[in-house]
Nucleic acid binder design. Structure first.
Length: 423
RNA sequence: GUGAGAAUAGCUCAGCUGGUAGAGCACAGGAUUGUGGUUCCUGGGGCCGCGGGUUCGAAUCCCGUUUCUCACCCCA
């Protein structure tokens, strides 16, 4: 039976997993410093959790969800994104009944039924943060600060941060009308798809990559110039705050994100270097109406998510190495004969309390073993051969210094420890 | 969902207009019976993605299928 993993999924191991764990560990430390608590929510939810929050008209809900019925005929859906589930959990567990805002972070697998390509899988991994219960523009600034710090702590230097405001329900509505009118006047310049969008979801015309459409909307009214006074004030403050934080960003009037629940501040981190059409590494925004929609109190909120797959891909492409913070020394224990196994076990137990340690489970000649140990950058090699076994000794070789010394196993444990600790 | 290309050893790939399946790296053994980046010798490994067709004969040509890649779409 020959089976491969389903389309758009992948097994993760080795180098790839090293990168992902590095990203996860770095971000956990960062979230901790910013006082965000971890949350784990289910990988699947009732279908309405997503269909109602993300928006019926969006592509994700229309054709990209893994929806299935369980044995009791409940319609369930594998999560296509993280925010909806977290908001549902916050409402269900009444987590808002505490000092607000509540600040959470998560990491997990997400699922979208799409045509796979580089940086876009059907099962993919995101990590993200949500802050629920504050409308303060400082909150927006903190989110942008987080996402920007996250990437710089991973070693990225030249990423572009795009920012825009989509306004609140009120000003977006009046703006959308103006924009729609504008589009009607320039209908003939738009591609067929955009002509269709014009009626269903006019803001999505901004996402069109066709030169002709981009050109057509060049002189269109910009949303950031049609905000109501309170949204304009909010957006100005956000921009001032992130400037104070020393974070570079570009205002992108055409940045309109794909979920219906976004309002006011939206932002995205893109790479011009990522060798792929999928160049958005992360993004997020405010969703001031979503908690209420889920039956909770009227709480403003903001969040973001980053794609682990793409981030890892770009790190590898740019040659950014996960900085190996290996505090412990490593030792390779070589036994020359199976007969020494009991002695070896005793030593292995001792070494593993002190350092990273492996042993040769299959007996080979010592030359090969040393070559292997060197190639794998072991700091030390310990050898049990006939001499050592008979006299209850162990030879320890410092691989960098090319120095070797035989220790008395019974009486020189402290000396061995001192050597391993580099004293 | 639309369009294009690809699939051969663990990895990277060669294999011409059909005629016995190849290299480098990796792995294993040896030169060197207990000592380090080199070198040399030897070896194991393959339903040539899967299924069908054409043919005396298919890795090679044709069709289908699956997966991957790229672009569109969309998004992280």
């Amino acid at each position: 039976m020959v089976l491969n993993s389903p389309r758009g999924t992948a097994d993760l191991y080795g180098k790839e997993l090293t990168y992902r764990n590095f990203i996860l560990e770095k971000s956990k430390k960062l979230f901790n410093r910013f006082c965000y608590d971890p949350i784990v929510t289910p990988a699947f939810e009732h279908t309405e959790v997503f269909s109602r929050s993300i928006g019926q008209a969006t592509d994700i809900v229309q054709k990209e969800m893994y929806t299935f019925y369980d044995k009791k005929q409940r319609s369930l859906t594998l999560r296509p994104e993280g925010t909806a589930g977290v908001v549902r959990a916050v409402v269900e567990n009444k987590l808002y009944a505490q000092n607000l805002p509540i600040k959470l972070f998560y990491a997990g697998n997400m699922f979208r039924y799409e045509r796979p390509q580089k940086g876009r899988m059907r099962e993919f991994f995101q990590l993200g943060a949500e802050a629920i219960g504050s409308a303060n523009p400082l909150m927006d600034a903190e989110m942008i600060w987080l996402i920007s710090d996250l990437f710089s702590s991973l070693g990225f230097k030249d990423l572009v941060l795009l920012i825009n405001s989509m306004g609140c329900t009120l000003c977006r509505k009046s703006y959308t009308q103006k924009f729609q009118e504008f589009l009607h006047h320039h209908q003939e310049k738009l591609c067929p798809e955009c002509r269709h969008r014009l009626d269903t979801n006019p803001l999505r015309v901004f996402d069109c990559k066709r030169q002709s459409c981009r050109h057509a909307i060049e002189d269109s009214p910009k949303i950031s110039q049609h905000l109501c006074s309170s949204c304009r004030d909010h957006f100005e403050k956000v921009r001032r705050y992130i400037k104070i934080l020393g974070i570079n960003c570009q205002i992108d009037h055409s940045l309109v994100r794909g979920f219906d629940y976004y309002s006011r501040t939206v932002f995205e981190v893109v790479s011009t270097a990522l060798d792929s059409a999928q160049n958005a590494l992360g993004g997020g925004g405010r969703y001031d109406d979503l908690v209420k929609q889920f039956g909770g109190p009227d709480l403003p909120a903001i969040g973001f998510a980053i794609g682990l797959d793409r981030t890892s891909l770009l790190m590898q492409q740019l040659g950014i190495k996960p900085s190996a913070s290996r505090e412990l020394k490593s030792l390779y224990l070589i036994s020359m004969d199976q007969q020494y196994s009991e002695y070896l076990l005793e030593l292995l137990q001792f070494f593993r309390k002190e350092c990273i340690c492996d042993t040769n489970f299959n007996i080979k000649n010592i030359s090969k073993e040393l070559k292997w140990a060197q190639k794998h950058h072991y700091d030390f090699v310990a050898i049990i051969g006939e001499e050592e076994f008979k006299n209850c000794r162990v030879s320890i070789k410092d691989m960098q210094k090319f120095k070797q010394h035989a220790f008395d196993w019974k009486n020189e444990k402290d000396t061995i420890l001192a050597l391993l600790r580099g004293n």
